[in-house]
Amino acid sequence: MFSVIQLPGSNDDRDMRFAMKSILGCEAELVWHRSSELPPGTEGVLLPGGFSYGDYLRAGAMAATSPVMGAVKRFAEAGGPVLGVCNGFQVLCESGLLPGVLIRNHHLHFVCDFVHVRVERAAAPFTSRVREGDVLRIPIKHGEGAYFAHADTLEELERDGRVWLRYCDADGRVGDDANPNGTLHGIAGIGNARGNVLGLMPHPEHAVEASIGGLDGLAILGSLADALGGGRS
C-alpha cells in the first residue's frame, strides 16, 4: 500500500492517488501530515506536488518539520521506497533525506510545460520499466525547480550514479537549450546513496493516460508499483 502524504497546500495529492489507484491498480491512501506514524501496511511513500504552507518560507521548509516527516525518515532509513515530486522533492531536500536544494528558476518565471527527460539510471524501484538513455515526455510546473548543490556534492552524485533523470531534448541531447530552469548538470531528479529515495521535479502523475498528458509517467510510477508487486498498467 502506498501512503500519499497530504500536507496543507498539497495540490497533486489526489492526482497521485488517482494514478496509483485508478490507473495502476495499487492501494493508495492519503495520509494527513499531522500523523506521526504511517498507516500500517505502508510499503511505499509518495510526497506529492503543491505549495505546502504556501511555500511562503523556502519551498518545502515548513513541511519538513511536519510530524509525518519523522515517520517518513524512519521509513526511508529502513529501506522503504520514497518518491517526492516537485514540492515533494523540495520537502525531501529540506528534511535532509536528499542533499542540495531547489532554487528559483533562472528566468524567474513559474513554468508549466511538457519537457523531455533522459533516464540516467534504470533500476528498481523507480525506473525498472525503462532502459538507460530512454527519453520520457513528462510535464514540469514549478517556480523553484533549479537543483543546486556544492561542487563536491554534485561530483559525488555523478560519481555514484545518483542522478536518475536529466532534462534533454526530444532526441535525448542534454544541454542549455533543453534546460528549462537553470538546474545544475541538467538535473531533473536525484536519489539518495542507498537508492530508495528519489526526488524529481517533473510530474509523472500528470502523464498516465494516453489522451491526457501521455503515458510516459508510468515509466516511473509503474516501476514503483512493480516494486511493490502491484502494477497492472
Binding site: 508549466c112 500528470h206 491526457i212
Partner: peptide, 12 residues
Amino acid sequence: RQYDQLVQGGTV
C-alpha cells in the same frame, strides 16, 4: 506557461 494547466488531471 506561467500557469499550472494540469493540476487535477483533467486538462484534455
